[in-house]
Simulated scan of single mutants.
Amino acid sequence: MKEKIFVRDLVEVLDSITGGRVLKSPQDFASGKNPFVVTKSSNIPGKAVTETPGLVCGSLDQEIKKIAVLMTLTESGIELAGATGVDALVAHHPIADAANAGGVLLRTYLGLYNVAALELHEAFHGLHPGIAYLHGHKAYHVDIRYGGIPGNILYVGDALPEVKTVGDMLFRLDTLMGTEVEEKVLQSERQIRGCQEIQETSVSARGSILVGSPEKPVTKVIHIFPHTGFTPEHLERVVSEHPGADTMLATISRVYPGNPLIEKARELGLNFVCGNSHALEIIENGLPLARAIKMHLPDVDVVIFRERLTSIPLDKFGAKDVQEYASYIAQNFLMKK
């Protein structure tokens, strides 16, 4: 007979996984002692959000039989949870009232479906070497505030034995990410919808070479995250600190033509590779988290909600009748007379 599992058990499991980083009571939040309670703000009025690792919405006494792990909570995730019997959603990214629930209040929406919501984010980061491993290197140096900038994360690592060239690195990524399957899914959708212009994130933003070529050797990797504030000056300094580095790897975010990091990498004789984008973090962080939850709570069903975002030209979106509906509404209600 299966043992009953409650939200409080899931909170304890997440606390164990993170090594004690989860809030377990309102007092923990109010004390200010948990360094993983972090407010993120771009100083856009009214748009700051505070990360609160642990239970965000729901009751600790609620029984759970099915858990879904996802990266970012959305109304689509809430609807899928309600329709498929999910009792608890564990989101990696911070949850904000209304913003992550389609403009609806979280308590109202989640309460209607009797779904609890939990988050981790910064409390989960740094617990495992997965992102380096997926990209084919083992980090021997990690700095989470390079250049004195909090969050400016830098890894420097030695290539794994099986990764000898830039081509090996990209082949490894494509294999681990299942890129071939994603391409087949995309091509099938294009054929079914009769629209070859459809694009999908994991295919469009797959690994790529910005400087160098597939046969170029890889031995020592400088691994950066462009959105954190890493500059060409930082790159010069890292190269001087780690002689023999031959490859720069950008992950989560990436750079595009015209970014000064590209020219600096070329000037320094480095390969420059863009690896996984943020859209694939469900594999890097979500899958191991889901597996760990299942190991702790074997009697609970665990599923993964994977976001798949596509781009479709306006005139080819939807059926003919819904296109006529959109034109009617736009013309008669949304255009100024």
Score class of each variant (00 low, 15 high):
K4M: 05
K4C: 00
I5L: 05
V11D: 01
L14K: 06
I17H: 03
T18R: 01
T18A: 04
G20N: 07
V22H: 02
L23W: 03
K24W: 04
K24R: 15
P26V: 01
P26M: 10
P35V: 03
V38E: 13
V38D: 00
K40S: 13
S42L: 14
I44Q: 06
P45K: 13
K47W: 07
E51G: 03
P53N: 02
V56E: 04
K66Y: 10
K66Q: 11
I67L: 14
A68E: 09
E75H: 14
G77D: 04
G77L: 10
E79H: 13
A81V: 06
H93C: 10
P94L: 05
A96G: 10
D97T: 06
D97F: 11
N100C: 15
G103V: 14
V104T: 15
L105N: 14
L105Q: 13
L106W: 07
R107P: 01
L112V: 10
Y113M: 13
A116H: 02
H121R: 05
E122H: 05
E122W: 07
E122Y: 11
F124E: 02
H125D: 08
L127V: 03
G130V: 02
Y133D: 12
H135V: 11
K138Q: 09
K138D: 13
H141I: 00
R145C: 14
R145S: 15
A159E: 09
A159Q: 09
L160H: 03
L160V: 11
T165H: 12
T165V: 09
V166S: 03
G167R: 13
G167K: 13
G167V: 10
D168R: 00
D168A: 05
D168P: 02
F171H: 13
F171P: 00
T179D: 01
E180W: 01
V185W: 10
I192C: 05
G194M: 09
C195S: 12
V203D: 01
V203C: 04
G207Y: 01
S208C: 12
S208V: 12
V211Y: 09
S213V: 01
P214A: 10
K220A: 01
V221E: 05
P226D: 06
L235T: 01
E236S: 12
V238F: 06
H242W: 08
H242Y: 09
P243G: 12
A245C: 08
L249H: 04
R254S: 15
R254Q: 11
Y256T: 13
G258D: 05
N259M: 00
N259V: 00
I262R: 12
I262Y: 11
A265I: 04
R266G: 06
G269A: 04
L270I: 11
V273H: 05
S277C: 13
A279S: 15
E284S: 10
E284V: 13
N285R: 14
P288F: 09
L289P: 00
I293P: 01
M295N: 09
D299V: 02
V300S: 03
V300K: 08
D301M: 07
S311V: 12
P313M: 08
L314E: 08
K316C: 03
K320F: 10
D321M: 11
E324H: 09
F333K: 11
M335L: 14
